[in-house]
Amino acid sequence: MKAAVFHRPGKITCDTVDDPKLEKPDDIIVRVTATAICGSDLHIYDGFLPQLKNMVLGHEFMGIVEDAGAAVTSVAKGDRVVVPFPVACGGCFFCGHGLPGHCEHSNDNYGPEGGLLKQKGGALFGYTDLYGGYDGGQAEYVRVPYANFGPRKVNPDFSDEQVLFLTDIFPTGYTAIDWANLQGGETVAVFGCGPVGLMAQKVAWLKGAGRVIGIDREPYRLETAQRTAKSETINFKDTDPVEAIREMTDGRGADVCVDAVGLEAERSVLDKLGNIVHMQMGTINALRMCCSAVRRGGHVSIVGVYGMSYDNFPIGQIFDKGLKLSAGQAPVHKYIDDLIDHVESGRVQLDDIITHRLSLDQVSHGYDIFKKKQDNCVKVVLTP
């Protein structure tokens, strides 16, 4: 089969690899009909998350069940399904408590410690050996384990593009806002107008926000936020976003700030030098801006990816302002059934952020333009 294979940082190509096979009784094989490139994939592409051997990438995918193990009862051959990006068993302590991203059984590297090279939580599709080593869905076929817990059948009346983002970016944006427990009328500022940030802005309105602000440095992404999420926008290349948000909120700051950027935010020369001294990669600049822009007693949701500890973490500011922080992978399995209902009822549109539709053969080009923010690229969908 054809698949997007990571070889080394900066090199992902469409290669011919072996077809996946059923390995356990509750496995299924999915023939992929649509998949996407995610901002989180760039962390592997750029070398921020280490991967030493070739691997099929991709954790946003859907398709048709091609084969099913003898113990699979929730789906059957021929069913059309979307697949949550965490690989989760459904039966352990964490899965039972609505935390499938911390599944105790899906990842051989599982452990309570956490950190870049330490014990991890549950596995993720196509997301390095640290996260289980499962081949991903940027491919013609993919093996999906624990098929009685993860995959969800989708309404045949909806196109692939209308439901594909139920796999990751819509649940992740939803998680960021749900953690903040909006009561209605709040000002929500979302740092980052990439795919996850756009979804968080859409969800903020669903949850009753009174004002939604998107912050980015790319004019085309800010235009997308205005068009698809009806957000007010701030270009932080031209305007100090912290001061702007305070001016918009009577000097207090936003009720909720979402970090939808993570470690690959813009860095200064001093940041880069500091990384060498402290043996760090990336930056927490987006998080710092969130902690400054949020009001006292406000909530900061962190759904941008961070893989390690950082020097100069603003704990004093967090303590003085009495901030509430939530962070981590989206518990997709917890939310997905309600989110399917949001899509089917027409309360939210997901496919209006797609800018590029490419064949799987064009995956190298897709990663290149997404990484370099070329050709006004917001979201790439691939067809195997």
Rank of each mutant, 00 (worst) to 15 (best):
Met55Ala: 11
Gly58Leu: 00
His59Ser: 08
His59Gln: 10
Met62Asn: 13
Met62Cys: 15
Gly63Cys: 08
Asp67Met: 14
Ala68Thr: 08
Ala68Asp: 11
Gly69Pro: 11
Ala70Met: 15
Ala71Met: 14
Thr73Pro: 06
Thr73Ile: 14
Thr73His: 15
Thr73Gln: 15
Val75Ile: 11
Gly78His: 12
Val81His: 11
Val83Ile: 15
Val83Gln: 10
Pro84His: 05
Phe85Trp: 12
Phe85His: 15
Pro86Met: 01
Ala88Leu: 04
Cys89Lys: 10
Cys89Thr: 10
Cys89Met: 07
Gly91Gln: 13
Cys92Gln: 07
Cys92Thr: 08
Gly96Lys: 03
His97Gln: 14
Gly98Ile: 05
Leu99Lys: 10
Pro100Asn: 09
Gly101His: 08
Gly101Ile: 03
Cys103Gln: 04
Cys103Leu: 05
His105Cys: 08
Asn107Glu: 03
Asp108Gly: 11
Pro112Met: 12
Glu113Asn: 12
Gly115Ser: 09
Leu116Ser: 09
Gln119Phe: 07
Gln119Val: 04
Lys120Thr: 07
Lys120Gln: 15
Lys120Arg: 14
Leu124Glu: 15
Gly126Ser: 07
Gly126Met: 04
Gly126Glu: 03
Tyr127Gln: 09
Asp129Phe: 12
Asp129Pro: 03
Asp129Thr: 12
Tyr131Val: 06
Gly133Lys: 00
Gly133Pro: 01
Gln138Arg: 05
Gln138Pro: 13
Ala139Val: 08
Ala139Gly: 12
Glu140Pro: 00
Tyr141Trp: 13
Val142Gln: 01
Val142Ser: 04
Arg143Asn: 06
Arg143Ile: 07
Val144Asn: 05
Ala147Asn: 02
Asn148Ala: 10
Gly150Lys: 07
Val154Glu: 02
Val154Cys: 07
Asn155Tyr: 01
Asn155Ala: 07
Phe158Ile: 06
Ser159Lys: 14
Glu161Cys: 09
Val163His: 06
Val163Trp: 08
Phe165Val: 01
Leu166Ile: 06
Ile169Pro: 00
Thr172Gly: 09
Gly173Ser: 05
Tyr174Ala: 07
Ala176Val: 02
Trp179Gln: 02
Trp179Leu: 02
Trp179Pro: 00
Ala180Val: 05
Ala180Thr: 05
Asn181Tyr: 12
Gln183Pro: 08
Glu186Thr: 03
Thr187Met: 02
